[in-house]
Design a binder for these strands. Sequence first.
DNA 1: GCACTATACGGAGGGTACCTCCGCTTTGTC
DNA 2: GACAAAGCGGAGGTACCCTCCGTATAGTGC
Lengths: 190, 190
Amino acid sequence: MSATDVTTLAPRPKRADARRNYDKLVNAAREAFAEQGTSATLEEVARRADVGIGTLYRHFPARQDLLEAVYLEGVEGICRAAGDYADQPPWEALSGWLHEFVGFAATKRALAEDLLAYIDRDAEVFTACGGAIYGAGEPLLKRAQEAGVVRADADIADVTKMISGIAAIRTADAEQIDRILGVALDGLRA
Amino acid sequence: MSATDVTTLAPRPKRADARRNYDKLVNAAREAFAEQGTSATLEEVARRADVGIGTLYRHFPARQDLLEAVYLEGVEGICRAAGDYADQPPWEALSGWLHEFVGFAATKRALAEDLLAYIDRDAEVFTACGGAIYGAGEPLLKRAQEAGVVRADADIADVTKMISGIAAIRTADAEQIDRILGVALDGLRA
DNA sequence: GCACTATACGGAGGGTACCTCCGCTTTGTC
DNA sequence: GACAAAGCGGAGGTACCCTCCGTATAGTGC
């Protein structure tokens, strides 16, 4: 990963029981947010994690700290995924990763949205996550541009933002997303 | 407007004082949501409207009813706007309206998102709003397709959803949105 | 104008979630 | 095994959600 390592932003606690509870809480939160949206109550998260409410608040003093932890997990995943496309042809590599990126953005978008309500857009989390994602995707984009299959005037920030936008579309029809993504990717071709 | 008239979905109350309070509440809510996001408290809205909390709840028994009322206002506006482009060339008309649509979607997206948490995607409000927007935009799209400037395999639902997605992008840089919109519109051209 | 009724108003109050605080428990160390 | 240091849990104060009902006002018929 060429940019800041996002994992350094989420220092796990030291003592064994504390680390155990921390992990239980993050897992419980991920499930709860997935099932009930980001408005899931923190008491519900604590209950799921089978941990006292006080413990939750010690590890995550504010609501956004918990959102952040879950968000970071996702960012780590999508960054790692970029490496899997290294041995594919330029266009296939880029578009393959972007298709995967839609999935990531779709599940984590609500989280990011919620985070924005609490912390500033250019807070450390976001710049670091942005940096990590751009660092992961840039080589794929550059390779496609050098191969002449993608327009030269697009940068990785524009591209990932466009895809995030498409991922934000709420529709029951998964095919429609694919169709729209196809249109957008066509706009990207040289 | 070719589809269901959205205004029929929001029956104004009858008595003069009630109508007055209703309007004060909707205005206060629009302001509050704009300033503080959709999580603005209802007590705050009532305070702004200078109305008792009981009055708010009589007009809008559930939180979503208030969100809905503000959302409908926006939908009416963007539908009306489509008519203003009737006398422009096909591509300019479509892309002009879509540029305006980005602005609408950007301010009302959070509202729609929130509504989805309460009511079903295919509830009356959404189908009616979707119908109204599609009805307003379809002539513009069709004209552009018949003039051969837009690909024939795109329908109005795909197009508006793509634009909504782009509007959902959170960035401080307004130029970036324009750039991305440009890429997406290029993907739309014949 | 006046009286009468349907309609609407306001805010007290019960319930829930948020978050803090602090006495008790567990972990790691010597 | 004893002793800090670190961590745990939940009672309780605060803020918001929403309901309920006694009071006030608009519209109507005379």
